[in-house]
Design a protein around this nucleic acid. Structure first.
Lengths: 185, 185
DNA sequence: TAGTAATATATCACTCTGTTATATTATGTG
DNA sequence: CACATAATATAACAGAGTGATATATTACTA
């Protein structure tokens, strides 16, 4: 998607494409160094007026070919790691006020991500890549919106859980070891 | 969610809860050993008739308390790693037939996951946890369905991309180094 | 003058993934 | 009947990635 420094790649993966793939500096910088060693990218140091110098990397033709080769696979399922859903799975063990607060914050996060994607229309995407980028950004919007709407419509399932089950956090802690149907054999 | 062996935990994370959190054996077995050292779980070896022996782990009360403590945070955004979306982002570089095949396979994968979640209604979830589990499974369904529908309705954006841009894989490879608006300066 | 923040690169301990190894039982298959 | 494959079950390890920390420059602000 054009030449970039490691820092710029990180910013891109934190912004509009955060729902695709994330990577840390500890992955990006060593990867760029390795790609340069292998002749798949070139590196050019560029000094800037109002900022620290940066190293701008560009794909070579061999790098471009390698990229295409790597993409000629049928990808498996997406790998997801959601601390939010893990927490929701144990909502019945947690103080209802905490669950409600987490839900509120989650709706905020999803709303903010959606706004960010909406403002990305007409973003600086290189020629010939518009519809690919449009597909990916649209995918992000669709999935984020579905998550937002689902939480809004079904939050009662977890916010009322502890009350319905009669088991607040303190109740749980007051129970004896291995309370329900979990025999030691 | 009840006592389990490492193998059973892995199966659970591959099945109905694969959209929440994944983990490999290399994460699970060392984690169980560590939790046992710390007194947060107990371990009981159980011999089976028609299968190899297994080690069944159970939370202690201290483990239960620790779990609740760990969940008293406000979780950040979900971490996603989608090889599929990375591929889609570069659809314009790939042979259209390959992109079409990947789309077909993806719709199959999403359809299969949805069916699996649909059949999970009335699953073996411990008492008091039903609505938490229902929320999480419903979330998975909603997001998976949104992804499936979006791909079905917008696949033309990536399947026609190479044709519209006039750039098949061979065209790209025939171009000179740094073809478009990517000056070395 | 000091503190915070953004930009920018680099390194490293620790964690996790993906793979391989090992063992048991069941299920084909030629 | 031997042989391969597959499912169940645990373990270990090389290599990759995360999260944290270090370092440096410039800008803002108290």
């Amino acid at each position: 998607m054009g030449d970039a420094s490691g820092y710029e790649i990180k910013k891109l993966l934190e912004g509009p494409f955060s729902h695709i793939h994330e990577a840390s500096f500890g992955a990006i910088y060593p990867a760029l160094a390795r790609l340069q060693d292998e002749g798949l990218v070139t590196c050019e140091e560029r000094s800037q007026e109002k900022r620290p110098d940066k190293k701008v990397y560009a794909l070579t033709q061999r790098g471009r070919f390698d990229l295409i080769k790597e993409l000629t696979i049928v990808p498996g399922p997406d790998r997801v790691r959601s601390d939010f859903l893990v927490l929701m799975l144990y909502a019945h063990l947690l103080p209802p006020a905490h669950v409600a607060n987490v839900i509120e914050k989650r709706l905020d996060i999803l709303g903010a991500l959606l706004t960010e994607l909406e403002n990305e229309n007409g973003a600086p995407v290189p020629a010939g890549e518009e519809s690919s980028a449009e597909f990916v950004l649209g995918y992000g919007k669709a999935v984020l919106k579905a998550a937002h709407d689902y939480i809004k419509d079904n939050r009662h399932l977890v916010e009322g859980a502890a009350l319905v089950a009669g088991g607040t956090r303190d109740d749980i802690l007051a129970k004896e070891e291995r309370p329900a149907g979990v025999a030691a054999e």
